[in-house]
Simulated assay, not measured.
Amino acid sequence: MLLTAALVFVTDVLARLFGSNLVKRHFHLMLSALVLFGPLLSFWVSKYSIFANSNHYLYRKFLKSTWGWTCIFSGSFTLLLSTSARHPPSLLLRHLSRVGVVGLLWWGSQRILTLLEDAAGTCYEPITPDQDTQGTAFSAQPLLLLHEDQTKASCLRANMVWRGYEVSQDILILCLCCLQLVEEVSVFGRHLAQTKPLQRSSCGPLRFIFLLCVVLLTLWMFLLLCLLAHFPKFPSQQLGGALGYLGWRGLYQGWYRLKPGWGCPGLPEGHFSVTDIQKHSQ
């Protein structure tokens, strides 16, 4: 009973927080400021910090599977919320399709950015100059032998040097997942407000998965801050953040605001549209 009461209290507070206009309208501004000014923290953080190691457990286990974790938790929350609201299967699938659309956007962005990086970059092989034939002025800088038939992935696997323009895909997916999680969980407060008092305590699984989504959002924000502070890469990280913002803007502030239907998944607020539910139940 004590754990249940603690879960109810914490989730009620978080639901009011994420459902407030302050978070819904200004979270993207806070995230943008973090991406823009986060690299300035590199002047104060210690290079001996455990998070300055690119092989840290959090980077290896979470950073490369950011979208997978976000898909599991946000999809589970949407599924339980739709089930709790007693949506028909067609409406349930439409709400779940928002997760699939973001996944397709991320998959397409990866492919396009990889092609652009391979086309704009060049692979070099470092060559140590011969100390007997080269002077000291040239021995300080190794020569580079050009390899034009290499992609970025094959070049790095061969322990060679890749030079070219790039966009930080880690920052892109972290920003996109943060913005998506905020959009999806922001409707939980409204769900609790429309639920009868006797039924609020019975939605324990939904409260628990909502809490996990908030924890995951906190973890993504922390990893984003670590990358910006310990591994600053200007302007590739800012470009990645801008693309993540544009993806969220085009979906949640553009396409999803059209008339809901099979051609448009609709906003998360569609969980509470009475006319929309009646339309799909007929």
Results as ranks from 00 to 15, higher is better:
S32W: 08
Q278W: 08
H87W: 04
Y48T: 15
F188K: 05
T133N: 13
S154I: 05
W107E: 13
P126Q: 03
H28Y: 03
L172C: 09
T66L: 03
Q278I: 11
D12W: 02
L93A: 12
S20K: 06
V8F: 02
I277V: 15
L91F: 04
V167H: 02
C71G: 12
L14I: 10
D118G: 13
L172V: 08
L105Q: 03
L224G: 02
F234I: 09
D130E: 15
L223T: 06
C177S: 11
S186W: 01
D130L: 15
L116Y: 06
W255Y: 04
L192S: 07
V187Y: 08
S273T: 07
P265M: 01
G266A: 02
V167D: 00
G204Y: 05
C203N: 13
M221Y: 00
G19S: 15
I112V: 12
E125L: 13
K47L: 05
A6R: 08
R200I: 15
L239N: 04
D130V: 15
R94P: 05
F188V: 14
E183F: 03
F188E: 12
T128G: 06
G204H: 03
C203F: 15
L22V: 08
A15E: 10
H191S: 15
S281E: 08
F43L: 09
F9G: 05
C123P: 07
S154F: 06
A119K: 07
V214Y: 03
Q194K: 13
S74A: 11
F27R: 00
A120S: 14
F9S: 13
W262P: 00
V23L: 09
R207D: 11
G254Y: 06
P129T: 14
L212T: 06
P265A: 01
L224F: 00
T11D: 02
K64Q: 08
G68F: 05
